[in-house]
Design a protein around this nucleic acid. Structure first.
Lengths: 149, 149
DNA sequence: CTGTGAATGCAACTGAGTCGCAACTACGAG
DNA sequence: CTCGTAGTTGCGACTCAGTTGCATTCACAG
């Protein structure tokens, strides 16, 4: 079952028959509007700005729910920024994360190689991919140019 | 500087001027001979079978050293088996990890798409990759066939 | 509106990973 | 071969992410 191409996470959840509580609605909203990648702690902090009573456990339970529902992906971004895990809404376009340890930037890169990889794995191994995570560590353009001098 | 194609991790370390202590030698040996992927706890346990006095902190410090020297890669194997990180010796062949949550198996898959990806990222973004990690979650052949019935 | 099963907040807990420090040791200089 | 020392270890205390059990609260079907 594919995720609706557009529409809020909240809609997607209620379609799955998952109870929509005030806390979940808030967390989903924060995730939907987040500029970059959030970890659990940041998600909690952001949510508490609206509802200071929301608990850590609720955040973890909700993230777990979203992960197993396939609505968010979990990343560790190559541990550039610590040991925590980061979360992002699962999207339609295949993309890869590029992390540069020198400047600490995480950028994204769209490529159909992700799909090609899934196809090759299926053809050669009989393995049916449900999720692919690709993280590349290296030197970004800006840091590379700075070094060249 | 490429890692020597063959030879023990210990040799590779001493080539880099890193002091070779009894504890490091032991940990390297365990890593070299490990059948699959080890996490820090398993590495500690295995090492303690030979030297019961080796400490947790030493294991973490050594792993950190090996990571920053580029001699081992850190994986989380898509959190199939928990939240810990797993370590494997960095190898010459590009490979991808295939994880099947149903049977808990992690297998590996060699493909030149890893190299192609690094090239594409460089060509289109000016990003120079030093490491690529690809983890695929899905249904392995055996579990897929079992489901078909 | 109401009953109930699911979700929440809370507080205690687990376990991975880190840190400061005193004791120890690998290894290069002599 | 011996010595000095900078780097390493073991130890114990600590931090902090994530989990769990339980009493209370709440979403929502009927």
């Amino acid at each position: 079952m594919p995720v609706a191409a557009r529409g809020s996470l909240a809609e997607a959840l209620s379609l799955r028959g998952i109870r929509l509580t005030r806390q979940r609605r808030l967390l989903l909203e924060v995730l939907d509007n987040a500029p970059g990648h959030l970890n659990a702690r940041e998600l909690l902090q952001a949510a508490r700005r609206t509802d200071p009573t929301i608990d850590r456990a609720t955040v973890y339970r909700t993230l777990h729910l979203l992960k197993t529902s396939g609505l968010v992906d979990e990343l560790d971004l190559l541990h550039l920024e610590g040991e925590e895990h980061y979360y992002e809404r699962r999207r339609t376009g295949d993309h890869v994360h590029l992390g540069c340890p020198q400047c600490g930037t995480i950028s994204e890169f769209e490529t159909d190689l992700v799909t090609k990889l899934a196809q090759e794995v299926h053809r050669r191994e009989g393995f049916t991919a449900t999720g692919v995570r690709i993280e590349v560590r290296g030197t970004c353009k800006a840091c590379g140019e700075a070094q060249a001098r």
